[in-house]
Computed example of a mutant assay.
Amino acid sequence: MSEMAGRQSVEGEIPPVGGEGAPARGPAELVQVAAIARRFYLDGHSKVEIAKEFGLSRFKVARALDAARESGIVRIDIRLPALLDAERSDRLREAFGLHHAIVVAESGDPLQTRRQVGTVAADLLSEIVTPDDVLGLTSGRTLEIMCAELTRLAPCTIVQLNGVISDHPNATGPVETVRRAAHISGGSAFPIYAPLVLPDAATARTLRADPGIAAAFGRFERLTKAVVAIGGWDEQTSTVYQTLGPDERARYAEMGVRADMSAQLFDAKGEQVHTDLDDRVLSVRAEQLRRVPEVIAVAGGAAKAEAIGIMLRTGLISSLVTDAAVAKVLLEE
């Protein structure tokens, strides 16, 4: 018999019984133990039902089940789909005190691994989002995959948490992501039709006052769950970095910036680095995310391992979906 999350197999052969010096069991006892194990593990009968059938006490049924496991008549294997790395998931959850830690096994192909991380994140959202949740979504390539893979979502409100990258070839990505998620859930969508980074604070203030944008910002304090992306401070892993000029990039790096999340900048210790960028972005603030009961980071790739570790140290993240390459680095640290 085989199941996705676990398997109990009751073997017909009589295995070696007990360890060295253990009393040998006769064939009649072995047959009875196997029959009791079959009733319990394969047929789903309760211990009370089995005790009645065999004319035994519940205590003796429990002893027989223990004997079945100890002797090897019953072998219990915990199995997950090959896509998931169960051991690293559990170790990561425990090491960082996370609500959920889902680690995707390495595929050998970075693009395939990213798609798998996005797919698993979609499955996690389908599992944990409940009716009447207010779900916030930031932008990112893996988050776009996540929403593309969504097939079901409880009725909830979907809020975009930051503006779009205006010079990005897929500049409407976050808007489409929010609208697709809302369509699947049947809930309301609150997109932000504006750039993430503005040239100055005055322009940002003006746009925040726009009724449509204000409607999204007004729901940041009501968030019950949020899904965020993480970037390092380099051109390959950070969309914020990509929007800035060389002087700004270098200046923020000199201030100690090593990671970003929702256009909020952080140093190697996980402390937020406040810059003039704070007033020039259309994005949820770190202090607002800190009040959200469930913040799920969806990020993978060995190049982001340092940044993901930094963000875990901030205390802003309660759950993480990542890949085995990242998990290996984090656990070694």
Results as ranks from 00 to 15, higher is better:
A226L: 12
S166E: 14
H168E: 02
R38H: 11
L161W: 07
I128G: 01
A62Y: 00
W233P: 08
L56Y: 05
A171T: 12
K52M: 15
A67G: 11
L83Y: 09
R38A: 11
R152M: 09
E20C: 07
G256H: 05
A22T: 09
G18P: 06
I36P: 01
D85C: 08
V134I: 09
P293L: 00
Q32A: 13
R205Q: 12
G270Q: 00
A95F: 04
I308C: 01
A302G: 08
Q236G: 07
D167S: 09
L244V: 03
D133P: 10
S238C: 08
A307G: 06
E333T: 14
G97P: 04
G12E: 12
A105I: 00
R291Y: 10
A82G: 13
V329H: 11
D132P: 08
A37Q: 07
V48Q: 13
V33R: 05
K52H: 07
H274F: 14
A327M: 09
F220C: 03
A154C: 04
V321M: 05
F266D: 02
A202L: 13
A95N: 10
L282Q: 04
P174S: 06
V159N: 06
T322L: 01
G18Q: 04
E11R: 15
E49N: 06
G212S: 15
R291S: 15
L244M: 15
L80F: 12
C147P: 02
I36A: 01
R75Q: 12
D278G: 08
I310W: 00
A51Q: 07
P246F: 10
M146N: 01
L42M: 11
L277P: 00
E13G: 12
L42E: 14
L83V: 15
R290M: 11
V178S: 08
I36T: 04
V74Q: 01
T142W: 02
G256I: 10
L196P: 07
L143I: 14
D279H: 11
I14N: 04
I102C: 03
D90L: 15
D132F: 12
T275F: 13
V31I: 10
A216Y: 07
A28C: 03
T275L: 05
D77L: 07
I128C: 04
E287D: 15
F217R: 07
E235R: 13
K225R: 13
L92Y: 01
E287I: 09
R152K: 11
I192Y: 01
L124H: 13
V103Q: 02
C156Y: 07
S238I: 05
G140R: 00
A28P: 02
Q242M: 08
N162A: 12
G300D: 03
S126N: 10
G72D: 06
K52T: 03
Q264M: 14
T113W: 00
A105L: 00
V48A: 15
R205A: 14
Y252V: 05
I165L: 10
E332R: 06
G256K: 00
K328L: 08
L125F: 03
E87S: 12
S126L: 02
A5V: 14
Q264W: 01
G140F: 01
I73G: 03
E248R: 14
I145P: 05
